[in-house]
Design a protein around this nucleic acid. Structure first.
Lengths: 207, 207, 207, 207
DNA sequence: AATGAATGAGTATTCATTCAT
DNA sequence: AATGAATGAATACTCATTCAT
């Protein structure tokens, strides 16, 4: 164990108690971040929420940023669910399922997603991560779109990258609208409509 | 008790010199906000940029928030340009023009738009303004879409509100992609593709 | 006219207009001082009140302190009125008259007196002036008391200085009580009672 | 929404060290307040005096005002000492004792009393507290005076409230004179004279 | 003399991070 | 590992006073 590696080593919870404190802090941080946003969140409040001594925070994390990353990592936000489908599923059903999955996941994680949005406005690395997440969704769409174009069941004149990003952005935008209560439609209708718009947009044919 | 008499006297630009200083400050603030973001922007830097004494800032503005609002107001960001079209213009040309206008305006104001985005993550009033701006775009699309549906040249089964917001969100998303340099397409191709996606999505017929 | 003498020369109102502005500022200052106290009073508010341009203040006064002194000087606060009495007036009537005069004058000038009190807590020169004013009252009492003692109509074992200051302090204290509305007695009864206490205290005999 | 959890965490002296720091700050604040007055006192100076880091101030107090209140509370200024006397003590001895106690206590606490006076000129709550303190003294005198009147050993034509306040004010005034070194008499003579004036004033008879 | 803008020193307050026990 | 106190850099804001027209 060299010096360099110990320099920033923090308790990683090797003991049971340690693991517990660490987890309490992550949970508390998520609560506080969602309540106050990253900027207004104070370490002291996180510790209060976690029922942890003030100083213990730094036993486990080097900074507010670090715990934020941990919180983000701890949240399983998989906005993507195109793949685990049977290969012979009808394309439109895949799209519908993906849309529903996206909207539901977004809704379930709206709190932390907003904080991520906030932090991404001044933290380059979070911004990158956020973009990557959406890109992943877009890339999956892009792959599928190419396949449909090759199969001749989608508009071949569309640029797959742009189509994927545009449609992904469309779904993301509506997801936010639903969460903020600004939508007159409920989630089911939104899924229907998005699916229709989407399949129209790429002129998807029933194979 | 005369409250007004207690109110702080502020330079309102009674003099030419005053108007100038005020404007310099607004311009300087915009520069600094775009360079550092709202959070990292310091009043001192704004004054340096504006070639103004520190104290002069408070001759014109009560706070960093206030000057930010002024900056936002001073920026003419009209993302919308659907209406000034001749009534008999072909629908697809209207859509194309709107898309181009949106992308170009977004690009031209990308710097301040990012700051607005940042501030809207913790300032409710800015958040509202931001949403209103996008809503305005969406409502215009919604109106148009209804007309097309009534004319029988657009898919009547689409919900106009959702279609408008979804398509508006799609354009907004691509606008951001273009600005951040993540797009393999240039703005002209993006306009083309978005227009195609859009007209496909609502199944727009050439009348 | 040498440099030294012009260094701090300020407009003294040699023209009619100048005299007027100067007077407006003094009047405005008194109003603002009485309303807000010296500490919270702002030059800007004084100028507003005086209907005078902001910068004009320094045409006439070098500082907030200076105008305060002018205000104090402009107010005729003569808490003393023992002398102008006919030499053969009955002693108790002199005391009664002095008490009444003190209470009435105090009441009439309560506003500025409070400000003077405030300033005297951090400005030595004002403190001195304030003390001098009360001392003047006390010295007059002291003189009278000595006379009464020499005439054999007052307790000769009393120290005239202490008696004078104690009785003067007594009147001053009640004056403040009357002004602040904490007294159950009205001014007439207060005069009566103070006069009685006073003449009792020095065991004044009707000559 | 749990407001308490958002409240700033403050050192409440859970540790011995904490208690100590807090006390050092209060002591240091008193020293600085007495030296510079409330207005000129700077937090930094208080911390220097208390041998404490700048930030530690805010571990214990929210503001300069708050620590001032603490300082005032921590000072045991009991200007009153009429009651603990044996019920059969001679009235004049009670008065003498009270006078002596007042003058001595005032002298001992002259420094902070001046600061209290200063703050009371712009802080209503301190002003109230200050008045209450003097009122307590006056009310005690008032009670006693009534008793003497009922016993027929004091002038029955005096208003007890006014007499009490007038005599209390008299003592307070002399106390200040003694402290400021403006008195030609020493404290013992002052006590004698005040006692004589007082008993004369209410025409106290030896029972 | 009038006007109103320019100047900048002075300070309270926050809170992430470090440290001693 | 836990605890809670100590630390101090960073900065917005006030307003008396000066200055240019």
């Amino acid at each position: 164990m060299d010096v360099a590696s110990t320099a920033k080593r923090r308790g990683t919870g090797r003991t049971e108690r340690g693991r517990q404190s660490r987890q309490q802090l992550i949970d508390g941080a998520r609560t506080i971040f969602e309540r106050d946003g990253f900027l207004r969140a104070r370490i002291a409040d996180i510790c209060d929420e976690a029922q942890t001594a003030y100083g213990s925070f730094y036993t486990y994390f080097v900074s507010k940023e670090e715990i934020f990353h941990e919180v983000v990592d701890s949240v399983e936000i998989d906005l993507l669910r195109l793949e685990p489908f049977p290969e012979d599923a009808k394309p439109i059903e895949r799209i519908r399922a993906a849309n529903r999955h996206y909207l539901e996941t977004y809704q379930r994680n709206a709190g932390i997603l907003r904080v991520i949005m906030q932090v991404s406005t001044f933290d380059e690395s979070v911004s990158q991560t956020r973009i990557l997440r959406q890109d992943e969704f877009a890339r999956a769409i892009e792959r599928r779109t190419r396949i449909y174009q090759e199969q001749g069941i989608a508009d071949a004149t569309l640029d797959p990258w742009l189509a994927a990003n545009a449609l992904g952005g469309m779904v993301a935008f509506i997801a936010e609208k639903l969460v903020s209560g600004d939508s007159p439609l409920d989630i089911d209708d939104a899924v229907d409509q998005l699916t229709k718009l989407w399949s129209n947009a790429i002129q998807l044919q029933d194979p």
